[in-house]
Structure formats: C-alpha cells, structure tokens
C-alpha cells in the first residue's frame, strides 16, 4: 500500500521534472547548426595544433585545463578508493581459478591488449580514441589477468610511483610551456619549435598531443588497475 503510494508520488515528481526539462529542450532543436566557438576550432585546428582529430585537439590543447582536471579526478578516485579500502594487510581472496581456456587465452592476449592500448593513445591525434580509452584498454588487460589467476596482483612498487610520475609529467609539460611560451599548458613543441609541421596527418605531428596522451594513457591505465586491485583484495585476519 505504502509502496504504491511512494511509487506514484515518485512518478508524479518525475513527470513534472520531465515536462520541465522537455520545455527547455524544445528551445534547443535537435540537429541544427548552432556552432560558434566550435566553428573556430574546426577551421583552425590543423594550422594551430597540427592535429587532424578536432576532438583530440580540443581535449588536449584548447581545453587542456579541463583534461588536467579530469586526470586529477581519476587520481582522486584511485586515491580515495585506496584510502577507504586500506587495511594493514591485504590479500586476494578469490577461490576459483579461471578455466584452462581463460588462463591460456589471457596469457596469450595480454601483450596484444597492451599493444592495442598503446596504439590507441599514441595515435590519438589522428584517429578516434586517445589517452582515456587507451588507458582503459590497458587496465582491461590487467583485469583479465585478475580474473584468470587467483593470486595475481599488479606490481604495486612500480605502479604507484608511475601513477605519480605520469601526473607530474603532465604538469611539468605545462610548466615548461609557462617557461618557454609564457602560458601554462602552452604547446611549445608545435608553436615554438614547429616540430612535425612537415608531416601533418602522420604519427610524428600534433605538437605535444602525443606526449600528453602517452602520459594520460599511462596514468589512466595504472589508476584504473589500481582501483580494480583495491576492490579485489581484502583484509587478511590472522
């Protein structure tokens, strides 16, 4: 009885919210050209950043500050998960080993998935993808190992410093920009040194985009596998 009342109350609230939102959305019709700043990006992206993929150029270069914040958010999540699930002694508690197919397959696939992830983030300025999907793909490789083997753990001594170093690298690239071009996160490789201007559309172009995407890819990969590790290891009680 109460349950029905509750549900209907919730549904009425939702209908009001939905109507309100639909009113607003009707003022922004679907599929029309309303670009203002977007047009500027599309027209100038090749000359100003050396990237072919406009989304990548925006993410890393024009709105690089957002991306720095985004990397920070992921760092916070991995730190926070680590802090909350911190125990003095932690160990994997999985009991069932993966099947033979899974174990062999994961060992075989592991290097290839890593390579694929690296490919995605290195080619971020040319093809769809970039640091975030690339890093997530790398984390998936470790996820598969976690599922296949009961006692697998990531090399913590390597991963935690790597996570910090990649983040510091990102900020340092920005600070070098501040020193060389007098703006934080300035693309000094492209705008001051003009590296890669000759081979636009190939791998060695795009200014600092590949550098930053490599750092982001490493960072995202280590962070996401760190989160997976924190969730899968439990306290050991003696």
């Amino acid at each position: 009885m109460v349950s029905v009342l509750k549900r209907s109350l919730a549904i009425i609230t939702l209908l009001i919210i939905g109507y309100w939102l639909a009113q607003g959305l009707a003022g922004v019709p679907f599929g029309q050209d309303r670009m203002l700043v977007g047009k500027y990006y599309l027209e100038n992206v090749k000359a100003q950043t050396g990237a072919v993929n406009a989304v990548t150029a925006i993410v890393v270069n024009y709105r690089g500050f957002d991306t720095l914040g985004e990397v920070t958010v992921l760092f916070i999540a991995s730190t926070g998960v680590g802090a909350l699930l911190w125990r003095r002694k932690k160990k994997r508690t999985a009991k069932t080993e993966g099947s033979v197919v899974l174990r062999t397959g994961s060992e075989l696939l592991f290097p290839f998935i890593l390579m694929f992830g690296t490919y995605i983030f290195i080619h971020g300025h040319l093809t769809p993808g970039g640091g975030f999907p690339g890093g997530a793909t790398i984390a998936t490789a470790f996820l598969i190992l976690y599922m296949a083997f009961v006692d697998y753990e990531i090399p913590h001594r390597l991963f935690e410093p790597l996570e910090g170093l990649a983040g510091m690298g990102y900020v340092l690239v920005g600070l070098i920009g501040l020193a060389i071009g007098s703006y934080f996160l300035f693309d000094w490789i492209w705008q001051t040194w003009h590296w890669g201007a000759a081979n636009l559309g190939r791998l060695f172009s795009g200014g600092f985009i590949p550098v930053i995407y490599t750092l982001i890819g490493l960072k995202v990969g280590t962070e996401l596998s760190g989160i997976v590790d924190s969730m899968l290891t439990e306290e050991v009680r003696e």
Binding site: I58, L74, I76, A77
Partner: peptide, 28 residues
C-alpha cells in the same frame, strides 16, 4: 560540433571516478 564530444569525454571519466568512489564507500 566537436566541443560537446570533448566535454562528454571528460564527463564519462568523471562518472566512472564517482562510481568507483561510491562503491568503495558502499563496501565500507
């Protein structure tokens, strides 16, 4: 328009970060 795509890339990552954080609180 490329801008919303760039924004959503950011929003997706922020979303998974929040989810992971929330799940660890739920485990606690």
């Amino acid at each position: 328009d490329p801008i919303p795509q760039a924004l959503v890339l950011t929003a997706i990552v922020i979303g998974v970060a929040t989810t992971a954080m929330a799940l660890s609180v739920a485990i606690t």
